[in-house]
Structure formats: C-alpha cells, structure tokens
C-alpha cells in the first residue's frame, strides 16, 4: 500500500504493508538509518523519533498512524534545543558504541522541550526508557544538564 509521510520536513511516498512498524519504513524504505533497532518491543528506546514533536518508539508505531503527522528523526534535528543537546553530547564525550545514542538524544530533546530545567529525578524518570548497554548514563545526565544550562544562558 502507498503512504505519504512527512518526515524531516519533506513529503515522502513509499510502499509498505499496513501494520509495518514505522521503524522499518524509516530504515529499510527511506534509508534514514540514524534511527536504530534495539528490541522491537518499545523496551530500549533506540528507535525513538519525534511524532508531532513527541518522543515516540517507532518500533511499535504502525506506519498508518503516522500519516498526516510530522515525523522527525535524528537526521532532521534542526532547532536550538537539539543543537544544544548534540553539542553537549560532544562536549561531554558521552558516546561509547553509540548505537543507542540517536534514541537517547531524541528523548533528551523531547525532555528539554517539555521541561527546560529538569531535576536529576526528572531526568532519571524521563530517560529511563532508553537503554545504553555501555552504561553511559552518567554522561548522558551531565550532557542534559549542560544543554539545559546552555539554553538558559
């Protein structure tokens, strides 16, 4: 079936079976591979994208439910909050294997949009759905706080 999706500001048309998770459409059909497959059951957050601005697990989001919405992937981040988050990630050298980090960044941007000055507990709570097997959590938290400080300044 043919779908029209608005992704990173552009309309894209593609063929997919109804029910196909948005993750596989984004990766296999649109070749936007920054969004990762980690578990397929919304338990690790590696596939996090923004749907209408909200962090969303694309591995359990059927393609048809994104029609008419605005999809943003890591490749499409283009706003001051995203820039501050990505810059903070580099300043703190957060990454190790890096495979989960697109999802971590998408969640962190979502957090700071809703709550520009999150407490440690609020960061823990919001980010608890994003798994990092390299356990870079100390630096993820530091980077979120740095981005928050940068945006405040």
């Amino acid at each position: 079936m043919e779908y029209q999706l608005k992704i990173n500001g552009r309309m894209r048309s593609l063929n997919a079976e109804p029910g196909t998770p948005l993750l596989w459409v984004i990766r296999d059909e649109l070749a936007l591979t920054g969004t990762k497959f980690g578990c397929g059951v919304a338990s690790c957050g590696a596939c996090t994208i923004h749907l209408n601005g909200n962090p969303t697990r694309s591995c359990i989001t059927p393609v048809e439910s994104a029609v008419g919405g605005e999809i943003t992937t890591i490749e499409g981040l283009d706003d001051p909050i995203s820039a501050a988050v990505q810059s903070a990630w580099r300043e703190k050298d957060v990454v190790q294997c890096g495979y989960c980090q697109s999802g971590q960044i998408m969640s962190a941007v979502g957090l700071l949009r809703q709550n520009p000055r999150p407490s440690d507990e609020q960061i823990d709570s919001f980010m608890s759905g994003n798994v990092c097997r390299c356990a870079t959590y100390v630096r993820i938290k530091d980077a979120i706080k740095l981005a928050s400080d940068t945006l405040e300044a």
């Binding site: 990766r27 296999d28 070749a31 936007l32 591979t33 920054g34 969004t35 990762k36 497959f37 992937t73 890591i74 490749e75 981040l77 990505q86 990630w89 580099r90 050298d93 957060v94 990454v95 890096g98 495979y99 980090q101 697109s102 960044i105």
Partner: peptide
C-alpha cells in the same frame, strides 16, 4: 563523537 551524535555513524545494521 560527531558521527555518533548526528545519526551518520555507519553500523553493519545500517548497510543497504
């Protein structure tokens, strides 16, 4: 750091 924070780092999972 840069490639792993903008989605451009290539893993085998990303090969098409």
């Amino acid at each position: 750091s840069i490639a792993k924070t903008d989605g451009s780092a290539q893993f085998a999972m990303d090969v098409k």
